[in-house]
Amino acid sequence: MNQAMAHVSDGERDRAVELVQQAYADGRLSPAELEQRLEVALTATSSHELEPVVADLPDEVVQLASTGGRITRAGDWHVPRRLRIESEYGRVRLDLSRAHIPHARIDIELWLAYGGATIILPAGASANADGVRTEWGRVACKAAGRQRPGKLHVHITGELPYGRLTVRSARR
């Protein structure tokens, strides 16, 4: 499909609106720029129209990769807005319960061929793992699925053909 003709998805639109709002909150956009960009983002009908709205705004993506080792993050660590994790055989453990998370929503992409992942959420956080595909693995999301006002929401996507994903809240 021609990129100029590609319809904009709700996810793309939401991401653009969030980036524009974050840029305004960070002081990188004036109120007039905020209003103009939001109008374009909310009325765009194609990805091509949406592109210039966010082209100059940073959208940090931190990538972690391993072939067979473990990827572990726990304690007081900085969680980026977007985290992409790739592992062929290793295990992944992300403990967000005591992490510094400056965003209301974070996106985690998991690309795990044979390994499994455990994501531990802070109290009150919600998660949506509907975008994770498996073949012989399984996805168990034991956290609330609906985002709560003022609380962290974690959106998880990716592929775990033979792996397992467990998402749960921190134990008290």
Rank of each mutant, 00 (worst) to 15 (best):
M1W: 06
A4S: 12
M5A: 13
A6N: 06
H7E: 12
V8Y: 00
D10P: 04
G11I: 00
E12W: 02
D14K: 15
R15H: 09
V17T: 08
Q21C: 08
Q21F: 04
Q22N: 04
Q22D: 12
A23Y: 03
G27W: 03
G27Q: 05
R28K: 14
R28D: 14
E33Q: 15
L34A: 02
L34E: 07
E35P: 03
Q36F: 02
Q36H: 14
Q36T: 12
R37Y: 09
R37Q: 08
L38T: 07
A41R: 02
A41H: 05
L42C: 10
T45P: 00
T45S: 00
E51T: 13
A55S: 13
A55Y: 04
L57Q: 04
L64R: 12
G68C: 10
G69I: 15
R73M: 10
A74G: 00
A74S: 13
W77V: 08
W77G: 08
R84C: 02
I85R: 01
I85D: 00
I85A: 01
I85K: 02
S87A: 07
Y89F: 12
G90A: 03
R91L: 02
V92Y: 01
D95Q: 10
S97W: 11
R105D: 08
I106P: 06
I108E: 00
L110F: 11
L112I: 10
Y114P: 02
G115W: 03
G115T: 11
A117E: 03
T118H: 02
G124L: 10
G131Q: 09
G131E: 10
G131M: 06
G131Y: 05
R133I: 01
G137V: 14
V139A: 00
A143C: 10
G145I: 01
L152E: 06
H153M: 06
V154Y: 08
V154G: 06
H155Y: 11
H155D: 07
T157F: 03
G158A: 02
G158T: 00
Y162A: 12
Y162L: 01
V167M: 03
V167A: 04
R171K: 15
